[in-house]
Design a protein around this nucleic acid. Structure first.
Lengths: 187, 187, 187, 187
DNA sequence: AATGAATGAGGATTCATTCAT
DNA sequence: GATGAATGAATCCTCATTCAT
């Protein structure tokens, strides 16, 4: 039940925005009355917080898992591909709306998950740092800047994907090549 | 007065999110009582809509102006640099909060400015298409996908800039090189 | 100008009811801004009160005038006809909305014009009392009851006239015969 | 509770007029806070509409019931008496304020119950048509005009009853004789 | 576990009114 | 004479929350 409530709330936030996510609306989606939610959660804030945490945690877990699934000596490009692929498909996947709720929250709430998100960013930072170490990534690039820039772009994907009708694979492929080689012709 | 109200509302939306942008809050910021706002605007919606429009319009105008300011035969990389530079600095600039309000709005409202945003996207699309034509941009890239992906990333910039403490020039530089050449070493 | 404002307010009250009669609405109808009305009237109440008074006064004056216009020895039926005719046509007439505003006002306000209305009712009472004296009206009838009953009915006329499409003459005729002879067949 | 709220609202409308019937006022009368009313009704409009419907329906039901209670061959005058008696006493009765709310509503709202009121008027129309058929009512009278005229008069009764101090029986008696035989002496 | 009923705070909006210009 | 701008109070309504059942 707890899970269903979280899912319902996430669904609403993603589709209609944070301000549309009222206790009544959430309750209606799980066939309950608003008051009943308080049996499962202490407050609306608790629900949102849990969604936030669960979203990043799952995302983190999935990407980390994917990396672990690769042989130790896998080339950098493959590792990056894997990471981007999992990240994008998780964001878009129907199973877990939790993961792209973040974009829709008011700053006050966003701040609460900062630590978790930094941990996740660290995973990407490490991946890229490895790339630098192995000579695959240009050492001149400021990873401190690049990671949020890149992740930020990636996170906006679901919104315009619905409009453009692209598949998550197409998007992932675009993100990877663009990130690796840029758009300049004749490389 | 109208302008000050718009600025105040934009300020609140950007800093605290859409749901925090109540008429009372806006009024307080311009030293008024909530009801008085209705002398200047018909409704809250009208305020938000105007912010939205004004934001994109100004952004569009600035970037277009910057492009016009370049000599006709300016190389593609220069044109791109100019566009990115103006876009980023506009987003971050203190003068006009209107321009990065969009990210914080609930989907229903976002949809309203779709046409305007598409017009703006078209400007970038044209810029890149010129690059393809002149042989500067890899013809294999699907611009329909690239433009929203790239702009989406760019728009998230202000949020994490405050955290990382980078300057708008640094960010613009990063965006340009990454977009053009990617991060791969040894180009 | 004062007169036009009163007319505008009356118009609104009659057509949309008292609650729709806001200062803004009235002002709009006379091409002004709400605040300007306060140059002509001290308050909204003053406007309504004046409409009320003017309405009954005009009605009273017209009916009294019609009675005076008749020869002294005019038969009772003629006098009654004249009174009813003038009353009904005044209520329906386009020139003076003021006269049927009364029905639409909240009780608190209605009460204020009580004295005036009683004066007007007295006119009818006298007319009927004359009828009794001259043997034209059944002496068994309680005029104290009849007058408000009859006038009450008459005042509702404009509302359903619009629906039924009857003319004011038809209505007056009906009212007179019904009042005099009832509806029973074979008199 | 629903019923008590309706009763409270009706009470206020009848006593102080539609504009005085605020959610706060209604709530106060049933010892609640304004917001709580929304648990029972979707909107203020819903309340008013329900009062309106319930009022006419009850009135209709009562009068119809009274007619059914008479023997088939009851003389016309008796049927009319019964109808008027029930109508008047219902209007004045303390139990159901709903029934005389109509008079106090703004036109926009009145229109909503038009169909129901027409159905009720039809009942009277039929009653009088029967009178014409049986030779009890003058065939020269336009019933389409008479019914609204007569009902209109009847409905104003409660207002001035309070002032004059007459009993509902007196009023009903007056209405019946006046309607049947008029006021002319020497019938 | 869940709900019916309620509440208080606060949401947007409207209104009569004021007053300097 | 009239208006632009403002206000405070009141409007309807929504929301998160509580609690007895």
């Amino acid at each position: 039940m707890r899970g269903e409530i979280l899912a319902a709330a996430a669904e609403i936030i993603v589709r209609k925005g944070y301000s549309a996510c009222t206790m009544r609306a959430v309750a209606a989606l799980v066939d309950m009355k608003a008051g009943s939610l308080y049996y499962h959660f202490k407050s609306k804030d608790e629900i949102v917080e849990e969604i936030l945490n669960q979203g990043i945690e799952t995302l983190h877990a999935r990407v980390a898992e994917a990396m672990r699934g690769l042989p130790k000596e896998a080339p950098f490009a493959d590792r990056l591909s894997a990471a981007v692929g999992v990240h994008v498909s998780s964001l878009v996947g129907k199973d877990q709306k939790c993961m792209h709720v973040y974009e829709h929250l008011p700053p006050v709430i966003k701040r609460r998950s900062r630590k978790m998100r930094e941990t996740y960013a660290q995973l990407w930072h490490d991946l890229l740092a490895d790339g630098v170490a192995s000579g695959d990534v240009d050492a001149g690039i400021d990873l401190q800047l690049l990671v949020p820039y890149f992740l930020g772009g990636l996170n906006r994907v679901p919104e315009w994907m619905r409009a453009s009708g692209a598949s998550s694979d197409q998007v992932a492929a675009l993100a990877i090549t663009t990130l690796l080689d840029g758009i300049r012709a004749g490389r």
